[in-house]
Write a protein that binds this DNA or RNA. Structure first.
Length: 228
DNA sequence: GCGACAG
DNA sequence: ATCTTGTCGC
């Protein structure tokens, strides 16, 4: 897959902000995105206790069977500090390395974190989508920017409420299981919010999180612990 | 000014 | 993110 990978990653907060400002205009918020994707990739990164050692995992599954098609991993050092809003720079280097090792070209990327639901509208999912050119969506376990009305969110699977930040709908609180805390979905790149939510719901038929996220999470932890 | 803040 | 046992419920 032809990616627009930079030759170096920013190391300072100012440089990182500049990169986001430069790339944010490249985000495609409309799509249409994949209508009936078969190859969907889940990405996640695991961290060690004291060290800066990190492990990234990408798991491509068949959207119809939810079975694994291919897996790729990469380990490295999280040099960039964790700064809300610049979180992507901590995971991008190792995630991109893992993506490079993939033979399969995913039709959709499901990221662990926000897409447009970000203070500058350029969360991890947007960044990965722009760099790879592959449609992407963010699925976060907690909100970052944006609020929603809990009373407007039905308790049944499939129910949703808009996530609004500064008068703008930036994502959606989406219930993937009856009565269970929702996940927060936002467009990353190459698709609109409805399409992103439709895919997330289809990939999470039984658990709160999409199968892609669950598998990538488990794999990244295993790799970090050296369980080959 | 102060606190909160994806993972 | 990570440190952590049991426990309530389907």
């Amino acid at each position: 897959m032809r990616m627009h990978i930079p030759h170096s990653w920013p190391r300072t907060e100012a440089d990182a902000l500049a990169v986001q400002d430069q790339l944010r205009g490249l985000v495609d918020r409309v799509g249409p995105g994949p209508q009936d994707p078969r190859l969907v990739a889940g990405l996640d990164v695991a961290y060690a206790d004291g060290t800066s050692r990190v492990a990234a995992a990408v798991v491509v599954i068949d959207a119809r069977t939810l079975e694994t098609v291919e897996r790729a991993t990469a380990v490295g050092d999280a040099t960039f500090p964790y700064i809300p809003g610049l979180f992507a720079f901590r995971e991008l280097p190792v995630l991109v390395e893992a993506l490079t090792r993939l033979d399969t070209v995913p039709e959709l990327l499901l990221c662990d974190g926000q897409g447009l639901a970000h203070p500058r509208r350029f969360g991890l999912a947007c960044h990965l989508g722009v760099l790879t050119g592959i449609p992407a969506a963010g699925v976060a376990k907690t909100t970052f920017v944006g609020t929603y009305d809990p009373a407007a969110l039905g308790r049944e699977r499939g129910a949703y409420a808009p996530l609004v930040d500064r008068e703008e709908t930036v994502g959606r609180a989406l219930r993937t299981r009856d009565g269970v805390k929702p996940v927060y979905v936002s467009t990353g790149h190459g698709m609109d919010l409805d399409t992103a939510c439709r895919h997330v719901l289809a990939l999470a038929p039984k658990y709160r999180l999409p199968q892609t996220t669950r598998l990538a999470d488990r794999l990244s932890r295993d790799v970090l612990r050296g369980a080959h």
